[in-house]
């Protein structure tokens, strides 16, 4: 799978109005991401990295530019189709975990699978399997209040991975975690890219994560400053 283009964005621009001032957050950004690679987007706050992944993942429509995701023109689709695209292909991991307090780890995962119309027994099997894969086999019945920050994030990863997504977006996945938990989380994301061939896009300003990246993109002021391939250039198909 390595080397196949998963995301190809051209000329992305986005501005926000704050009072009377219009601030340009993205200034004509071109972006690509490949299957089987962890692409890390780094930069200071306000550099536009979160806006970039919002536009890449179909969460926020850019003012200009287009996004080809898995060969489909994302922003040409209707809203419902974009939802459907995310449901079928995208996994998200946020800084704040965002788990329902009333559901235990297994139910968190099953909840999402339910919307993919996965059968109950199959959803349960997959939830247990994926939680086992992120090392939470002993935590299946725990609710978020009984889990540590690292464990919560691993549940969130399990929730994203259970859908078997081709695109995984992670926004500051480690910034609320201690260094050990952070390592576990980034290793899991790395594994998802290598073993499942997913294109993983990680937004972070944690330099420790660079060790797990195949490619590091630096952003500042809505533009890409540098783009470094670490694990050798992929074969472009």
């Amino acid at each position: 799978m390595t080397g196949k283009l998963a995301l190809n964005a051209k000329g992305l621009s986005k501005g926000y109005k704050i009072g009377k001032l219009k601030q340009q957050v993205l200034k004509g950004v071109d972006f690509t991401a490949y299957h089987g690679q962890v692409t890390m987007v780094m930069g200071p706050s306000g550099s536009g990295k979160s806006t970039l992944i919002a536009a890449l993942s179909g969460l926020m429509k850019p003012d200009e530019g287009e996004v080809m995701a898995l060969g489909e023109n994302l922003w040409k689709k209707k809203r419902g189709k974009i939802d459907r695209f995310r449901l079928d292909h995208c996994g998200f991991i946020f800084q704040g975990f965002n788990l329902f307090p009333s559901l235990n780890a297994t139910q968190q995962v099953e909840q999402v699978l339910k919307y993919q119309k996965v059968k109950k027994s199959e959803a349960h099997r997959r939830a247990v399997e994926v939680l086992d894969a992120v090392g939470l086999k002993h935590r299946l019945k725990q609710k978020p209040a009984e889990l540590s920050g690292g464990e919560k994030q691993r549940v969130a990863i399990a929730r994203a991975l259970s859908k078997m997504p081709s695109l995984i977006f992670a926004d500051e996945p480690t910034s609320a975690l201690d260094s050990v938990s952070g390592q576990v989380v980034i290793k899991l994301l790395h594994q998802a890219a290598k073993e499942r061939g997913a294109a993983v896009v990680v937004v972070t300003h944690d330099p420790r994560l660079e060790a797990y990246a195949d490619r590091v993109i630096h952003m500042e002021d809505g533009k890409i400053l540098s783009d470094t391939m670490i694990s050798g250039p992929p074969v472009i198909v």
Partner: peptide, 18 residues
């Protein structure tokens, strides 16, 4: 109080109708 959790479901592709 749970709006972020609902938003995360939205991100994962669960539609507004659901």
């Amino acid at each position: 109080a749970n709006i972020k959790e609902f938003a995360s479901l939205r991100a994962l592709g669960v539609s507004m109708g659901e």
